[in-house]
Design a protein around this nucleic acid. Sequence first.
DNA 1: CTACATGCAAACGGTTTGCACGTGT
DNA 2: ACACGTGCAAACCGTTTGCATGTAG
Lengths: 143, 143
Amino acid sequence: MKQAKKNIFHDYIVREGLKTTQQREIILEFFLSSAKHMSIEELYRELRAKHPNIGYATVCRTLKLFAGSGIAREIHIGDGQTRYEHIADGEHHDHLVCTRCGKIAEFENKTIEKLQAAVADSYGFLIESHKLELYGLCAKCRR
Amino acid sequence: MKQAKKNIFHDYIVREGLKTTQQREIILEFFLSSAKHMSIEELYRELRAKHPNIGYATVCRTLKLFAGSGIAREIHIGDGQTRYEHIADGEHHDHLVCTRCGKIAEFENKTIEKLQAAVADSYGFLIESHKLELYGLCAKCRR
DNA sequence: CTACATGCAAACGGTTTGCACGTGT
DNA sequence: ACACGTGCAAACCGTTTGCATGTAG
């Protein structure tokens, strides 16, 4: 599964006439093993601990490549940071964002998606993508 | 209805020990008559045309007050701009965002809201707010 | 050997803030 | 009078870009 994504990314690199570099490999490996919704800053900080000579700009640029290749997606949950999430085999999912601890859980609900499609239809609107986020307190923070 | 919101804002100003100023009145009047999801920049630019001596900072600060008073809400639709929408009597609504022309339509769907609540429950999550945006092409831009 | 990639620092874009001056109460 | 508000310009914060240098193919 991790390997599958590495392959997708590698194919993309080749297809686009780009190059496989040490930095890209390091960032790729790290991203694939990391938590699901890291911000650029978090990714950079943790990466930097092991690899002090990787620049912030390189992390930014590489994450954009991940998004371009289809193994990651840029998300914004309104905290002013750009985050990247793993794309799990075409599955779309939405987010439960804890406003206290910042934890992000994922869920999927086909019925909601169908209703969204119905709403869009009734407006003559053609959906390309959607974003559904529930903000509140996670089970732990409620207590 | 416009008057009702003016009253809400005015009460808020008094309650907080703030002051009614010319600028605030102008911005309030303008905001209440404006399109539903203006960005700060748009609001500022149009306002500025009539009132060249109103500063950007004042617009920002005043919009925050509107949000604080409950007559407006800050929204982010991922284009890097902060927008303010009117709050219609406690009604929540979601958005259809046209990725071509930028137009934002609103909708409301109680069934989706119920399903959201059900999902949150199943995670032990307590919803404070939510955001649902459908991105795509509006009826006009599809043609 | 050439084109692409990198790290740094400087630029960017939207928002916020510090400050001296203005104004509502 | 005093505290709050204003406009301007400078600061801010996360992200992007220009450039000289490094490196994959």
